[in-house]
Design a protein around this nucleic acid. Structure first.
Length: 701
DNA sequence: AGCACGCCGACT
DNA sequence: GTCGGCGTGCTC
């Protein structure tokens, strides 16, 4: 038994945006300090207490020893975050320039991080903790699952191409293969999922302790994958991890993954930081999806962290997509990632025919061209389904005054309020801002000139739905967008109706583009493909191509000949030629060449400093000063890191907060990170009313 | 990030 | 006379 005299201090990760480490004295009567690393502990914090993670034991402290407080209590007997996990969090911490506590602690279920009043009061009453609960529940679960129902494995026959791909991937995903990244590039309907399942199956059979992680970009996609896995692997316990789960359930699933009970873990990006007992395979589906890069909180890429964790654990990583991100594609071209391609659809049918409709100067009905309407009518006559894709919810995107050109601007944001049909018939219409949520009545007259000549401009999904009802009174029309989805059970209801064939025409936003396969769907109409075509963001064409191909992929999953109609004012844009040819490779290579020429990612590496304040001037001032501080650092003055001029953000004002940004760029990732490591501490010292945060590898500029 | 302390406007 | 606005400072 070690005595304590030589081990005095514990360094603790705390979920705060302050540079640590935070040192605590280890009470004299505590034994075996070296086993404390990786344990959660209650620590005094200001005049309250928090739960932190012990990351190291030291003999000295940099802090004033007189002000160092003692650890209060160790938590959760039997829970120690493993060393590989701590290293992975530390890597993320240096890569994203955030405190390890900010990255690591949110990955631990909340229930395991609360300071319970009873425990702190030192009550001797034996209360069961969430940790004990989850562990107990797991034991029960294990017992009841001892004899799984025997079910014949699905007898899905692989296509020749699938078999070849699997043969190629299997050795790289073998238990002894170690770290390696493979890109599975497969067109929609080519059967990527079946390859994932086979790889997982092989790994779990080869190693009786192995766990496999399947990452998905969105919560909405997790239930269907979970159902599929349950059906295919009734003998393997599964775990589901996403941010929408109730705390107790998430704790139980997390503990199951930690104990090694769950063999397959399905989750969204936060699942990547789970302390798995024995992770041997990571699959990232739809790896290009922007949802992997967190929009709020700490910005990290679930996909990139999956690769980092694979490297850390020596475990194979499979990235799958029909339209890989250019970063991933570049890595595959250069041989850093192995490329495996599925070029044909598993169900022998031809890919849908993609037709462009030039709507420039064309008279439209509810945003639809005559040929689109005719195509819908033909499907209707044959009893087939159509999907009308419009990425704007509400009735009309803006209200316009014909007399003075007033537009329905939001008072809090640099955006227009959208005209919405209200939920209840009686209340008619409302004006809603999609950015700050503010609602108002529809003005009776123009607020500027008093004219009553106010009219809705443009199409939203509500108006399109109503228009189609007028045009095609016999058609059964369903709508799916965020407004519909808000009502409990409504999404499921619409989808079930569509699957059952009770809907002829489905109108919807991006929500409909992912995951759903409607067997009788033979027509997809993209109402307006142009939004984003000429956006300032250099990634706009990449996203447009991925979105359009994904939407197009909804058609023709049943074998019938099917069609995709894309309405655009710029049919000559190169993105459409590639789209028509279903030619991702040509598109990606052309985009990569452009990016390379323009010195944009993946040829260069970027970071973005965002500032928000009450006024744009404040935000700009902060960024200008920050840039000046940066210019004095070696990497900037020697030209290896470039600082652009601060600019207002594309959405300059949201909810009354004004925002600006400063872009940094370098050809060398190490130089960029060296610069950031010197620069950010300087920014922390500046006293400023501006809220700021750094985004490494920004996806939206 | 929270949370407390600390000085200046509209209310029971 | 108070409740409360958010500016400033601090957390090992």
């Amino acid at each position: 038994m070690t005595t304590v005299s030589s081990m005095k201090y514990a360094q603790v990760w705390v979920d705060v945006p302050i540079t640590g480490p935070f040192d605590y004295r280890i009470p004299d009567d505590w034994t075996d300090p070296e086993f404390m690393v990786g344990k959660l502990a209650v620590v005094p914090w200001g005049n309250s207490r928090r739960v932190g993670l012990i990351s190291a034991i030291t003999q000295t402290t940099q802090f004033d020893p007189a002000r160092v407080k003692p650890l209060e209590q160790l938590l959760h007997d039997g829970l120690t975050l493993p060393a590989w996990w701590m290293k992975a969090v530390l890597f993320a911490s240096t890569y994203y320039h955030k405190n390890p506590g900010e990255l690591g602690l949110p990955a631990i279920p909340k229930l395991l991080r609360v300071v319970s009043a009873e425990r702190v009061a030192g009550s001797k009453r034996k209360l069961s903790t969430p940790w004990e609960n989850a562990s107990e529940r797991l034991q029960k679960h294990t017992e009841t699952n001892k004899s799984p129902p025997l079910q014949a494995p699905a007898s899905i026959v692989l296509t020749v191409e699938q078999q070849e791909s699997l043969t190629k991937m299997t050795p790289v995903c073998a238990p002894s293969a170690g770290f390696g990244v493979q890109l599975l590039h497969g067109i929609t309907g080519s059967g990527k999922t079946e390859i994932y399942l086979r790889l997982i199956e092989q790994m779990l059979e080869a190693d009786p302790a192995a766990q496999a992680l399947l990452l998905l970009p969105e919560i909405a996609l997790t239930p269907q994958f979970l159902a599929l896995l349950q059906q295919r692997f009734p003998q393997h316990p599964l775990a589901l991890l996403n941010s929408a789960m109730p705390d107790a359930a998430r704790t139980a699933q997390w503990v199951s993954a930690y104990r090694g009970h769950a063999r397959i873990i399905v989750g969204t990006r936060l699942a990547v930081f789970t302390p798995f007992a024995s992770l041997r395979l990571i699959v990232v589906d739809e790896e290009h999806d922007p949802s992997y890069k967190q929009a709020e909180g700490v910005h990290y890429s679930g996909r990139d962290m999956a690769v980092a964790i694979g490297a850390q654990l020596g475990c194979p990583v499979v990235l799958g997509s029909a339209t890989p991100s250019l970063e991933t594609w570049d890595a595959a071209q250069k041989g850093r990632y192995a490329l495996v391609s599925l070029k044909s659809r598993a169900l022998a049918q031809a890919p849908p025919n993609i037709l462009l409709i030039n709507i420039r100067g064309m008279k439209l009905q509810y945003g639809l061209s005559v040929s689109a309407i005719e195509a819908i009518k033909r499907r209707l006559a044959k009893g087939e389904q159509s999907l009308i894709f419009l990425n704007r919810r509400g009735f009309a995107p803006v209200l316009h005054c014909g007399a003075c050109e007033w537009l329905s601007a939001c008072e809090n944001c640099s955006a227009y309020k959208v005209l919405h049909r209200a939920a209840s018939r009686s209340s008619g219409y409302r004006m809603v801002c999609h950015h700050c949520g503010v609602e108002s009545a529809v003005p009776k007259g123009c607020p500027d000139c008093g004219s009553v000549d106010l009219s809705p401009v443009g199409q939203g999904t509500q108006r399109l739905e109503e228009g189609l009802t007028q045009l095609l009174p016999a058609a059964r029309i369903g709508r799916l967008d965020r407004d519909v989805a808000r009502k409990r059970g409504a999404t499921e209801q619409v989808l079930a109706a569509a699957h059952a064939g009770h809907i002829d025409i489905l109108v919807g936003t991006q929500m409909l583009a992912k995951g759903h396969n409607f067997t009788r769907l033979t027509l997809v109409v993209v109402v307006n493909a142009d939004s984003g075509l000429f956006a300032a963001d250099f990634r706009a064409p990449e996203r447009l191509f991925a979105n359009l191909l994904q939407v197009a992929g909804r058609a023709g999953r049943a074998g019938q000949a099917s069609e995709v109609l894309v309405q655009t004012q710029s049919p000559d844009h190169p993105v459409f030629a590639a789209l028509q040819g279903h030619d991702y490779v040509a598109f990606a290579n052309q985009q990569l060449a452009e990016r390379h020429q323009a010195a944009l990612p993946p040829s260069t590496y970027q970071a973005l400093l965002r500032g928000q304040a009450k006024t744009l001037a404040q935000a700009m001032h902060f960024l200008t000063e920050s840039a000046q501080l940066g210019e004095q650092l070696d990497d900037a003055s020697q030209g290896s890191v470039r600082l652009y001029d601060p600019v207002p953000m594309p959405m300059m004002r949201i909810a009354g907060v004004e925002r600006a940004q400063l872009l940094l760029e370098s050809r060398s990732r190490p130089a960029l990170h060296r610069f950031l490591a010197q620069w950010l501490p300087l920014l922390q010292q500046t006293k400023t009313p501006v809220r700021w945060q750094l985004d490494v590898d920004p996806q939206e500029i």
